[in-house]
């Protein structure tokens, strides 16, 4: 009997069924699945019970890990720290504890690392930004995350992924922009101000927060990748994401990070005569060729 080759449609269906969604996983499962099997070790986990000291006074139930999972483990058999934010708890927002967990882990990755050698970091972004219930401490400690990322990425890569569910906003959108390499899915969103905030501050004519299509056209992973703000667009699959992260780590530290390319960006922005007529097609043209520097320095 001659085996009948499966049709392309059947292959696609099989592939779809074989996929394991990364988006549907919780932060802890995400971190544990990303590192090499059997190497995950969580730090300052739920049983350490360092939760937010500010939420209870506002009638909000804290979570034992404050929504941030820190896992030390290996990727490509080399040590790494994975920082995974739980979008289900308070929208993945950055409070005193959650932000301090991220900043302190990044500092330890640089200062202590593995036997004195700095180790790279992987950040899984799922955050509405600063937690307004801890406003100014969240803001200040988000600044500490930025500082710690900038110090660490000089010596080892800091790789970010925005898988999607909550997306990545506010101060954490700035953090995403500071990554050595940023990976998104089509389901991921990235922007500084959320649509509701823009609508509140500038009116519905500026941004209609109910216009789903507009939101995805501006902030969605496909657009961010096309415009050169993300380095890679991958599908929502655990193995695909893990492979992309391993490849990004192997690539090392870019010769220049995107946020250092001041002259090039200023020159391009200066070309925008009338911002009011600016659209996404113009954007793709404008920043074409500004993807992360391909010349990487391996360290």
């Amino acid at each position: 009997m001659n085996p009948v080759p499966p049709s392309p449609t059947a292959l696609a269906a099989e592939h779809f069924l074989a996929r394991q969604s990364f988006i549907e996983l919780k932060a802890r499962e995400r971190a544990e699945l990303l590192v090499d099997a059997g190497t995950a070790r969580e730090l300052a986990g739920p049983f350490d019970r360092i939760s937010s000291p500010w939420l209870a006074a506002q009638g909000l139930v804290p979570q034992a890990d404050d929504g941030v999972v820190i896992v030390r483990g290996a990727m490509n058999a080399r040590p790494v720290v994975v920082i995974s934010i739980e979008g289900g708890f308070q929208g993945g927002s950055m409070g005193e504890v959650s932000a301090a967990k991220i900043a302190a882990s990044l500092d330890l990755a640089r200062k202590v690392g593995e036997q004195g050698t700095p180790i790279p970091a992987v950040l899984v972004f799922e955050s509405g930004g600063v937690r307004l219930q801890e406003a100014n401490l969240g803001l200040a400690l988000t600044g500490e995350i930025h500082r710690a990322m900038l110090a660490l990425r000089r010596v080892v890569p800091v790789v970010g992924v925005i898988p999607g569910m909550v997306g990545c906003f506010g101060g954490m959108a700035i953090a995403a922009a500071l990554c050595s390499h940023l990976i998104m899915t089509r389901e991921g969103r990235l922007s500084l101000n959320g649509p509701e905030v823009i609508e509140q501050e500038a009116g519905p004519a500026e941004f209609d927060s109910h216009d789903r299509k507009l939101i995805w056209e501006i902030t969605g992973g496909a657009q961010r990748y096309a415009a050169g703000f993300a380095d890679e667009l991958v599908e929502d699959d655990v193995q695909t994401l893990a492979d992309a992260l391993r490849a990004a780590l192997a690539r090392g530290v870019p010769a220049r990070h995107r946020s250092e390319r001041v002259g090039e960006f200023l020159e391009r922005i200066a070309r925008i005569d009338d911002p009011l007529r600016f659209d996404s097609a113009m954007l793709r043209d404008l920043f074409a060729g500004l993807k992360t520097d391909e010349r990487h320095v391996s360290r």
């Binding site: 500082r147 900038l150 922009a177 922007s191 823009i198 500026e206 507009l214 902030t219 995107r258 925008i272």
Partner: peptide
Amino acid sequence: GQAFGRREEMMGIFLSCAAAADMYVAARM
């Protein structure tokens, strides 16, 4: 604050803010 605008988001205002923060940290270092 930061500029609240649809086009600003499109043009990557998060990266502009990152570039400024990057400079201050680079200056310190």
